[in-house]
């Protein structure tokens, strides 16, 4: 994946280290989102079931509730910030899209790694396809599409929005993304997709023994 460079950087010619710095600069929003996700996951793992580690039961409960809910930010919604931030730092659509999706992918991989405690590796890997992860991915893709509208407007003003092809693609991608999110976790609490996922599991692994 290449990074587009709309404005030439003065130190571009300084070689690899400048390129690395620039890569980091562009990817920083995605990295921050992933680190936030990992930090929240670690805090949840550390605190869950241990009110004695807090000053009071009330403090424990408040902390856990905030941590659990906050984790959905990087997992489901970070594209709202990550995608436009990366685009405005020079990333191509594809690169920014991957960046926006990276937290959802990390969410899936973390789930799979944690599942290794309970399931053999192949089954744990399949866990990364669970409806929550698929819904998170759908959400991030949908918000990325909407964020592209913002990016065009920011760069080109209203003129940037007078593009029927842009709107067609944005609407199609956002609809597909939100549909995935809806099916994964909202429609009847996600149970229909859950059963599809489990049937897929049974095709690969039988009853899992």
């Amino acid at each position: 994946m290449s990074i587009s460079t709309p404005q030439a950087s003065p130190d571009q010619s300084a070689g690899d280290s400048a390129t690395s710095r620039r890569l980091l600069y562009v990817a920083a929003p995605a990295v921050i989102s992933i680190v936030t996700l990992l930090a929240l996951t670690a805090l949840i793992e550390w605190g869950s079931g241990h009110p004695e580690r807090f000053s009071s039961v009330g403090a424990y409960r408040a902390f856990m509730d905030v941590a659990v809910l906050a984790r959905f930010g990087p997992a489901f919604l970070s594209a709202i910030i990550v995608y436009p931030a990366m685009r405005l730092r020079g990333a191509s659509i594809g690169w920014a899209g991957w960046g926006a999706a990276s937290s959802a992918i990390a969410f899936g991989l973390v789930s799979a790694v944690l599942a290794l405690r309970f399931f053999p590796p192949a089954q744990a890997l399949y866990y990364a396809l669970n409806p929550m992860v698929v819904a998170a991915l759908g959400s991030q893709v949908a918000f990325s599409a909407l964020a592209e509208v913002f990016v065009r407007w920011r760069r080109h003003g209203r003129a940037g929005l007078r593009n029927p092809r842009l709107w067609a693609i944005v609407i199609a991608v956002a609809t597909a993304g939100f549909a995935l999110c809806y099916v994964g976790v909202i429609w009847d609490g996600g149970r229909h997709w859950f059963y599809v996922w489990i049937r897929g599991f049974m095709l690969f692994f039988g009853n899992g023994q």
Partner: peptide, 16 residues
Amino acid sequence: PDEAFTYQPLLERNVW
């Protein structure tokens, strides 16, 4: 119980 909290059902081991 003390260890329970409001959004506990959203923990990985409970969500399904």
